[in-house]
Design a protein around this nucleic acid. Structure first.
Lengths: 229, 229
DNA sequence: CAAAATAAAATTGTCGACACTTTTCAATAA
DNA sequence: TTATTGAAAAGTGTCGACAATTTTATTTTG
């Protein structure tokens, strides 16, 4: 797994955290399920202290929720929750894009263009479509966020929301027919960044994310119509 | 202290967390200083486990930073850090304002208007000016954020960034001459929300926050000019 | 039989101790 | 003197056990 936010695991807590993170993202530990500290500390062969430390980190990236004297639950994957994240991403990644247009070095911009070239080639291959949608899309957004050179933005988007987004993608199976259109949108965003046009870059990124959101909203609406019929 | 994000403290960890939070925000535990677990666990008369749990929560709201096998430090209050937070706030509170215009109930809007009336009266009293700038301003922004009815936005802004903002206000002594202008800006924002004009509401909130940021940037620029002279 | 009160079990919160890593500092060598 | 090495001290990471709370099961009561 190509996880760009992964720092080298040092302590055992790091390892448990990563294992549980993947398990939750991929649904092996089901969304909404209760977390039993004794059970999991036995399963992963660590003490409860170590496990609790890992739980704290999972809470930091919004993958679990804790209540005092009651315990932890994995977050639910609800439509409302997904839409709420899109709203936050629209605001933050839009701003990150504006900052990127202002702060990215020429080298960084060149690298982004190279990545997009790579995606373009993968896109032509039929079996590359899936790749582009999954890792490729996240990769693009990730690079833009880093390009903002704003540590607070980077921390929130890459450190906290990133895995929650991945979780929704995994569990809702987001293989939308937006692949080629998304690619074009990415191209225009990079152009705006290269032109150092922050205002346009932000607008394009916001529309790009809002389009994904509306795509989902439409899907839901259709689904509900079918259910009524 | 009127802290709107404070949940009722249940465990001893809760209490230590709140104490340390205030101590850091107000500078009693200095910005940038190293945190010694043995020292603080003795000072607060709790075990290291409990202290570490509190440290985890402080890390969640960006008040301290940890490195594996090395320890924790209180965040530094740098100009760059302050400006970075303003960027994030501009994006998130702007969006929160748009959502508030869309999602607030009529009752909530009435309550906000009432609060502003209150601020207007306090503003007329000379000794009320300070109040308005400190608690009042935070209170207004807080209500708008809640009005978004977006849990993710609320969590990030009220749960995580709120105290960091307070820390900067405390330690940099933000008593800007923007009080009356800020009040007018607040009024217009509420009007836009009441009109259900999300686009305008977002724009006004972003300008409101950007104005504060530029005010600080100017201050810094002036300061640097003086230092050179 | 249903609801409330009570007892038992399970779970979370807190503690002190030990293991391992990092830092400090003194001794040695260039 | 400065740089390197190595030992001692301090600090963080991890563990198992006990205390406090919540949940479950059982008994009692209307």
């Amino acid at each position: 797994m190509n996880n760009p936010t992964k720092q080298q695991a040092i302590t055992t807590t790091d390892k448990i955290f990563e294992q549980m993170q993947s398990a939750i993202v991929e649904g092996d530990i089901p969304a909404g399920s209760k977390i039993s500290e004794p059970e999991l500390s036995k399963k992963y062969q660590v003490s409860r202290s170590t496990l609790r430390e890992a739980l704290n980190r999972l809470e930091k990236c919004h993958l679990i929720e804790r209540k005092a004297n009651v315990g932890s639950r994995v977050v639910e994957c609800t439509i409302q929750g997904l839409l709420e994240i899109y709203i936050v991403r629209e605001a933050l990644e839009g701003m990150a894009c504006r900052q990127a247009a202002q702060n990215m070095t020429d080298d960084e911009i060149q690298q982004m263009k190279a990545i997009l070239e790579q995606h373009a080639q993968a896109k032509d291959l039929q079996d590359g479509v899936a790749y582009y949608q999954e890792e490729g899309d996240l990769d693009f957004h990730y690079k833009v966020i880093l390009g903002s050179h704003n540590n607070e933005l980077i921390n929130i988007l890459c450190g906290q929301l990133y895995h929650l987004v991945r979780m929704y993608r995994c569990q809702f199976g987001m293989n939308s027919p937006r692949a080629t259109r998304a690619f074009d949108e990415h191209s225009r965003i990079i152009e705006a960044i290269a032109d150092r046009d922050g205002e346009l870059a932000e607008m394009l990124m916001r529309r790009h994310i809002a389009a994904s959101r509306k795509n989902i909203e439409n899907k839901i609406a259709l689904k509900q119509q079918k259910e009524q019929a």
